[in-house]
Design a protein around this nucleic acid. Structure first.
Length: 415
RNA sequence: GCGGGUAUAGCUCAGCAGGUAGAGCGUCUGAUUGUGGUUCAGAAUGUCACGGGUUCGAGCCCCGUUACUCGCCCCA
């Protein structure tokens, strides 16, 4: 039996790998225009970082982490906690009071794989630490919008909400739980569990009975202070004037404990049921929670595979990988050695070139050259080696150019 | 953790009333002596997922296992 890849992982074969690299380069380019700098952190961290950063009761931490070495380490299931850890550990706040960072990296979660969801998957994202300006929220969403549009995705919607500060939520939750306690026996099993562990999450239940019960429940928004509401309204007004297509969704809560104020999700078509391509929000208390001097922050994360799936659905046209400039066809052992020396020169001067390594017939070598999309072919045999001259064939039209001196072949190819 | 679907050549799939396997694509070779793309000719490759059962005989029927896949939950 052949050994197979672990469940929920995948191989990126050359064609797809090329596309993936293209996407990553394009993302780097966009992030750079917004003045975000790349950050890379370890693939695994101390388990405690995620427990404290993301929240013990979240699904991610409670049942989806790849933990090893007696619970000491965990493969990172997301990046925000790591970025904040690195920010604190390296005192980045001393370099500049506002840090704008981005990342592209693989994450690991032990979930049942399905369309758009893997156990090892790639996320790219951005984090801004040090500013509570609502315009940073706006820039974040602008950036997400820009990225999707840069890939030709014009039909996405941003769902947006505010979940206020911890204090505001605390006040709300007392009333909310008070209300729910009357219906405790009618709630779904999931919601009953959340009632104690994470009551806010009950808001985005999918259970029909729960939704019915929630109809008359107190609304979080009305428990928010005026300044919180104004912050949110400012964000919305800005988005409107920027022509960004948003939709306020008061039930948008999100699953991670560290969120405060603005939360948002970009929804895209072509993803089946995993239709969130970008998700994010403010996390003004996380830095402090992880032991740092309090600093407001906001970020988003996006699924690279999901982005690629949307592109697939949209029939996005990736650029073709560049073909080779020259294929050297050879006849016999001597010419093969001659060819490899020639290749050494050509490649050194930046020419993408190739030759045969299977001792194949000229016909087969020509076929190979064609398959490799070679722009030119030159055949090296006795004659050519003796006279140091030959014919350079242009594959597109079959025309041949006389080459007086093979040694200076690159002159013809670099035009 | 729970539910559905699928499992035949590298890929996409066909196969039938149960008689030990096929197509297209791809790959490779050749169509006179050293020249591609089109065309033509030919070739290779399968323990028909695995284990058991029924049967004279199973890719096809039954049971189990595993893998993959889609959905629920949750998330990117």
């Amino acid at each position: 039996m052949l050994i197979q890849k672990p469940k929920g992982t995948y191989d990126l074969l050359p064609e797809k790998a090329f596309q993936r690299t293209f996407i990553e380069n394009k993302l780097r380019d966009i992030f750079s225009k917004y003045n975000y700098s790349e950050i890379r952190t370890p693939t695994f961290e101390k388990t405690a970082l995620f427990k404290r950063g993301i929240g013990e009761e979240t699904d991610i931490v409670s049942k989806e982490m790849y933990t090893f070495n007696e619970d000491e380490f965990t493969l990172k299931p997301e990046m925000t906690a790591s970025v904040v850890r690195s920010y604190l550990e390296n005192s980045l706040y001393n370099e500049s009071p506002v840090q704008k960072l981005f990342y592209i990296s693989n994450m690991f979660r032990r979930e049942r794989p399905q369309a758009g969801r893997f156990r090892e998957f790639s996320q790219f994202g951005a984090e801004v630490i040090g500013s509570s300006d609502y315009l940073i929220d706006v820039e974040m969403i602008m950036l997400g919008d820009h990225i999707l549009k840069a890939f030709g995705i014009n039909n996405s919607v941003v769902k947006i909400n505010t979940i206020g500060t911890l204090d505001e939520r605390q006040a709300y939750l007392i009333e909310f739980k008070n209300y729910l306690s009357k219906y405790l026996n009618d709630l779904s099993k999931d919601s009953r569990i959340r009632f104690d562990k994470n009551p806010l999450r009950i808001l985005d239940t999918k259970d029909k009975g729960d939704i019915e019960i929630l109809r008359d429940a107190p609304v979080l928004y009305s428990y928010l202070r005026d300044e919180t509401k104004i912050l949110f309204e400012n964000v919305l007004t800005s988005l409107k004037s920027l022509n960004i297509n948003y939709e306020v969704d008061y039930k948008l809560v999100r699953g991670l404990d560290y969120y405060t104020h603005t939360t948002f999700e970009f929804i895209a078509e072509g993803l089946g049921s995993q239709n969130t391509v970008i998700g994010g929000g403010r996390y003004d208390v996380l830095v402090e929670q992880l032991g740092g001097k309090p600093a407001p922050a906001i970020g988003f994360a996006a699924g690279t595979e999901r982005l690629m799936m949307v592109l697939e659905a949209n029939k996005y046209e990736y650029p073709e990988e560049e073909g080779i400039k020259l294929y050297i066809a050879t006849i016999g052992e001597d010419s093969k050695f001659y060819a490899i020396k020639l290749l050494n020169k050509l490649r050194a001067s930046g020419i993408k070139s190739e030759t045969d390594f299977l001792n194949r017939s000229i016909k087969s070598q020509m076929r190979e050259a064609n398959k490799l999309n070679a722009e030119y072919v030159i055949v090296i045999g006795e004659e050519e080696m003796k006279n140091k001259s030959g014919k350079l064939k242009r594959m597109a039209d079959g025309n041949e150019i006389e080459i007086a001196d093979i040694e200076s072949l690159s002159v013809h190819l670099l035009i």
